[in-house]
């Protein structure tokens, strides 16, 4: 790196960096620093007096049963949203790796959900499961099942998990297909010659070799479940019924934007920042480790 050939210009590089740095400072760093500042302040209900409360907002947030409930909701939602598409995509990718005819056709159809906005994905599933117009909702009720996600929290959760997981199948599928193609065929042939059956070959060779891909997808899916699914929740359930589908990100939005609890919302933002930093660190540690595999 040090021996790289470079241009000798002294001012030009700064000019090239200006657009990105300017946007970054104005729209990222300044607001983030304001969130940090706000998280230590508390305003009275009329917004007239602002007092410094140190970590008071954090103490309040972390001892709030609603917040703890939201943490639990987020864990359930994220775990399901991260793992379900991985399982489905892995099965489909293994099958796609076996077929020769129609591979391109399957892939073309499989990538559609990637292009669908999370909020729209939520609406598609809402159309199917809406108690008044949904065909599946109608069929469930005909089968004697009491389906009403507008009243039943678990059913609402199930609906947004289905939508969120559905959208993520494409992404996971493409990565598993690439992961499978990177496995040396000679390895599998050697195992086959040694008499290992297909199922055994999968669990002893393919599955372990896919571990780096799986781990990467787990991190990406978790980030997706935390942050990118806001649209699904906002469009489909608005965090309800009650608070049954209020995830941490939705709660930051709702407390800050709708309920105008500024200090509490800012403290929640800062906690989320901590979570993103942890997830990013994990992701980049992994990317570094991946170099050894390649």
């Amino acid at each position: 790196m040090t021996s790289r050939v470079i241009f000798p210009h002294k001012v030009l590089p700064y000019l090239l960096l200006v657009p990105q740095i300017a946007i970054t400072l104005v729209f990222f760093y300044w607001p983030a620093s304001q969130a940090l500042r706000q998280s230590t302040l508390r305003e009275d209900p009329f917004g007239l007096v602002t007092t410094f409360v140190g970590l008071g907002n954090f103490r309040q947030v972390l001892s709030d049963p609603d917040y703890i409930g939201s943490v639990q909701t987020t864990i359930i939602f994220s775990a399901a949203t991260a793992l379900i598409p991985m399982a489905i995509a892995l099965v489909l990718a293994v099958m796609a790796d076996k077929v020769i005819k129609g591979r391109g056709f399957y892939r073309t159809l499989m990538i559609w959900p990637y292009a669908v906005a999370p909020a729209i994905a939520g609406m598609l599933w809402l159309f199917l499961f809406n108690p008044t117009i949904g065909t599946f909702a109608y069929m469930l009720r005909r089968a004697g099942y009491d389906w009403d996600p507008l009243l039943n929290g678990n059913q609402a959760m199930l609906m947004i998990i289905m939508a969120a997981a559905w959208k993520q199948i494409s992404y996971n599928f493409l990565f598993f297909v690439a992961g499978l193609q990177a496995i040396p065929k000679s390895l599998l042939e050697a195992a086959a010659v040694d008499g290992a059956r297909e199922v055994k070959r999968f669990w002893t060779i393919v599955f372990p070799l896919l571990a780096p891909t799986s781990f990467f997808l787990l991190v990406v899916n978790t980030v997706y479940a935390f942050f990118d699914t806001f649209g699904i929740i906002h469009a489909v359930t608005s965090g309800g019924p009650g608070k049954a589908t209020e995830t941490l990100v939705y709660k930051v939005y709702n407390d800050g934007f709708v309920n105008l609890m500024l200090g509490s919302s800012a403290a929640q933002s800062v906690i989320l920042m901590g979570i993103v930093i942890a997830l990013t660190a994990i992701q980049f540690r992994y990317v570094e480790r991946k170099v050894h595999y390649a």
């Binding site: 760093y29 930051v252 934007f257 919302s265 933002s269 993103v276």
Partner: peptide, 20 residues
Amino acid sequence: VIFITLMLPVEVRILPTYKV
């Protein structure tokens, strides 16, 4: 400075960004 923006998605700075 550029790298760290990875860790500041809109979701963690909703209100102050709106104010800006």
